[in-house]
């Protein structure tokens, strides 16, 4: 019972972004994809989300091929929270969350769809904002609407593409806490592309370090965060130590010396 990514290759034009990525995430756990800019973590979430088609390789969930599914069937299984979404139209929070029901209804949403929407709004504490236009929301509130949309989509797998990068510290923590709770309470498998190693170490069950389209290390955060490997991947010396039961990564700051 797991999400399996098997030898996925993907390139933008001639630029190879994913060079044979294989990974297994146990159902109901929270996995972090880490790595520097351009390492392929965002692209990997998009491949699993069905936004991009890989050149080769497969994605399976509970043993079934995911990439061969039709778009709607895929969308009922795997949800996706993009980095941020600027909406050029005035849309209420409730309408925005309803978008998550797109793969579930035909022409118009039914009673069950609205129930899911209200449930997701409740889960993210958006009740008081539900009639508000999303253009009036703060960045953190807008991000929560995107998460609510993915919750309303009612999928077994949830992918998040750097959802916290635009948020202030409190909303970052709240979002990660929330996703972790959902994996626990709903048995949902979550995969997040994220920059902050310490956040990943604090909230995720599994950490995967990507570099140049390949997986360098994977395992629990404590296993994956290896000083030498991190130094190699980020081109920066770090120290890894345990604190309150979680691993913590600190950069070792030398005198300013720009590379090459």
């Amino acid at each position: 019972m797991s999400l399996v990514i098997d030898d996925v290759r993907f390139s933008y034009g001639k630029h190879l972004v994913l060079d044979g990525v294989s990974l297994e995430v146990q159902e109901g756990t929270f996995c972090a994809l880490l790595g520097p800019n351009g390492s392929g973590k965002s692209t990997l979430t998009k491949v699993v989300a069905g936004v991009h088609r890989p050149a080769s390789g497969g994605v399976r969930f509970r043993g079934d091929d995911v990439l061969g599914l039709g778009r709607r069937a895929h969308a009922r299984l795997i949800g996706y929270v993009p980095q941020s979404a600027e909406v050029p139209f005035d849309l209420t929070v409730r309408e925005a969350v309803l978008l998550g029901r797109t793969p579930h209804f035909g022409i118009g949403p039914g009673r069950a769809d609205w129930e899911r929407v209200d449930e997701a709004i409740g889960l993210l504490g958006l009740e008081e904002l539900e009639g508000r236009s999303i253009s009036q929301l703060s960045g953190g509130q807008a991000q929560r609407v995107l998460v609510a949309r993915a919750i309303a989509q009612d999928t077994r797998v949830l992918l998040l593409d750097e959802p916290t990068s635009a948020l202030d510290l409190r909303y970052q923590i709240e979002t990660l806490q929330l996703v972790r709770q959902i994996t626990r309470s709903h048995g949902i498998t979550a995969l997040i592309a994220i920059h902050d190693l310490n956040h990943a170490g604090r909230f995720c069950d599994q950490a995967v370090l990507l570099h140049r389209g390949r997986i360098q290390r994977a395992g629990t955060p404590a296993e994956a965060f290896d000083e030498a490997a991190l130094a190699d991947i980020y081109g920066l010396d770090v120290t890894v130590e345990e604190r309150d039961g979680y691993v913590e990564v600190r950069p070792v700051v030398h005198e300013l010396e720009l590379q090459r």
């Binding site: 998009k46 989300a49 069905g50 936004v51 778009r71 709607r72 069937a73 895929h74 969308a75 009922r76 795997i78 949800g79 996706y80 993009p82 979404a85 909406v87 139209f89 849309l91 309408e95 925005a96 978008l99 998550g100 797109t102 793969p103 949309r149 989509q153 992918l159």
Partner: peptide, 11 residues
């Protein structure tokens, strides 16, 4: 309302 990428992921 969601953009191309998210729309794809919405089926």
């Amino acid at each position: 309302f969601a953009g191309d990428d998210a729309a794809k992921s919405l089926g």
